Each structure stands twice: as C-alpha cells, then as structure tokens.
Simulated assay, not measured.
Amino acid sequence: MTEVAQTRPFATATDSGTGALQTFVTAGPSTIVADVSAAQGGLDLGPDPHELVAAGLAACTTMTLRLYANRKNWEVSGLHVEVFSHYDADKTPPERFERVISLEGNLNEEQRERLFEIAEKCPIHKLLTAGARVVTTVADQD
C-alpha cells in the first residue's frame, strides 16, 4: 500500500512573531494560540503542546463513546473525560496519561464496563499506545 500525500495539512503551526513562544495552531477550521507558562518562557496564553495532546485524547475518547452509545441506543445523558499528564523519569516511556471517564445516564454495570472497554479503542488512545512514525522534510526556501 502506498502512502498518499494529503492536499491540505491536518494541522499547521506558525510562530506569532512576537518574540515569545506563542504559536498559531490551525487544525481543521479552527485556529488557537498555543503557548507555555511564564516560567517556561511563554505568556501562558493558550494550551502547551502536552495539553494539546491530552485534549486530543479526551476529545477522541468522548466522541468514540458517544458514537458507540448512540449506535447501541443506550441512554447516555452525559460524557465527561479528563486527561492528566504525568512524567515519571524512572519509567519507560516516562510520559503517562491518566484518563478519567464519567458516564451519566440509565446504564447498567455491563453497559458501563463495555463503554470502558470501548474507550481503549479510541483512535488517539491506540495511536499513543502503539506509537507513530514521524517523517520530517524541509520545505524549499522561496
């Protein structure tokens, strides 16, 4: 199977030009400011890159659970996913995400357990646990 180049990037990041670390990140139709804390040299004007990864995991988990619950016609009135990032220097890999899932609705224990199993099938969860290849090229200068 050959790889097909995308005509539009999934995400772009452009330095704000202000001299600090603020970066304009565009993904899909939205643009946000990414930054780091003042202690790290930024102005804390937006999520840092680790927070963006955690947000992707939280969003994907929520969407995966909603799709499954809807397909099964289960009464899920609310889904809430929190993701915490931890760095354990003595572990391999040292980065650890902790995901806390809250489910609301008329669900029995079997349905709740199934939804927790389905959370493991979230594409971003699978990406983070399996790893991905990153290929870097340098664009031609104008």
Rank of each mutant, 00 (worst) to 15 (best):
G105Y: 10
A13P: 11
T26A: 06
Q6A: 04
R99W: 02
N106M: 03
R96T: 15
I124T: 14
A89Q: 13
H125N: 03
V53G: 04
E110V: 10
Q6C: 10
R66L: 10
S77E: 04
F84N: 07
A39Y: 02
H125A: 02
A54P: 03
E75P: 10
I118S: 11
T136G: 07
V25L: 15
W74L: 10
C122Q: 11
V135S: 15
G17I: 05
L21C: 03
R99C: 02
I124F: 04
R71I: 03
V33N: 06
T31A: 04
A58R: 07
N108I: 13
G17Y: 15
A39K: 14
V83S: 03
A55I: 05
S30Y: 15
L21F: 09
P49K: 07
K126S: 04
H86G: 05
L127Y: 04
S37L: 07
E98F: 12
G78S: 00
E109H: 14
V83A: 05
T62I: 01
K72C: 12
A55S: 15
S85M: 07
G105N: 05
D140R: 01
C60T: 03
S102G: 05
G131E: 03
G56T: 05
I124P: 14
S102V: 08
R66I: 09
V25S: 06
